[in-house]
Write a protein that binds this DNA or RNA. Sequence first.
DNA 1: CAATCTCCTGTCGCTAATCTACAAGAACAT
DNA 2: ATGTTCTTGTAGATTAGCGACAGGAGATTG
Lengths: 109, 109
Amino acid sequence: MRSKTDLLQGTLDLLILKTLALGPLHGWGIAQRLQQISDAVLQVNQGSLYPALHRLEQQGLLSASWGSSDNNRQAKFYALTTAGRRQLDAETAHWTRMSTAIARVLEAT
Amino acid sequence: MRSKTDLLQGTLDLLILKTLALGPLHGWGIAQRLQQISDAVLQVNQGSLYPALHRLEQQGLLSASWGSSDNNRQAKFYALTTAGRRQLDAETAHWTRMSTAIARVLEAT
DNA sequence: CAATCTCCTGTCGCTAATCTACAAGAACAT
DNA sequence: ATGTTCTTGTAGATTAGCGACAGGAGATTG
């Protein structure tokens, strides 16, 4: 009984892009920040996170560079590219469109 | 280049359940009503719709019966079962939780 | 009355995103 | 020395939704 999914499918890219718009961050940090901002509602597991990051990087939306984290560990820092910023805008618009439409349906009587 | 999806993945069941909460309807009618309420933002294609309906029926959330449509055609009318109504509540809550969390992320600075 | 259009249900094969579960290294704490 | 936390990764399975079909039966048009 699968049923309970930790995220709304299709929103992970958006969440990652948005998080990185606030400043470069490493994968683990992204997951942490999302969890924190969302009061633990949004849980990103590694099996989703890392593939997503690689995907986005491969699409040219993110750039990556190794560095050292706050805890003095090797970490791969991701940053938005210009294309990434554009993509963020597009996906934000799409999300707004969609969620508004759904809200309208849910309010119908 | 897929990119553009007609729905937010995972919300179709919710949309169907909600639409049927307003009264029994046949598949094609559900798609129409969703499209109408959402100003054509939500497009459900048959390849998604019918499998979803069968899925929901098999899960005991919907009951189906053949009848005749407004246009005097054979149509399969679906109605919410008790379990379906419960499921609708659960999925609505889940959606609200999730979309609120996402909104919070998108508003972050 | 024939042809075509609209309504309405369905199936098949594909793709892509996510989940679960696993593995592993390096820094820090005890 | 040992364990715990931080951090990155991969493999396999599932699953929803998409695109492209196919087809029947009532309505409409000519």
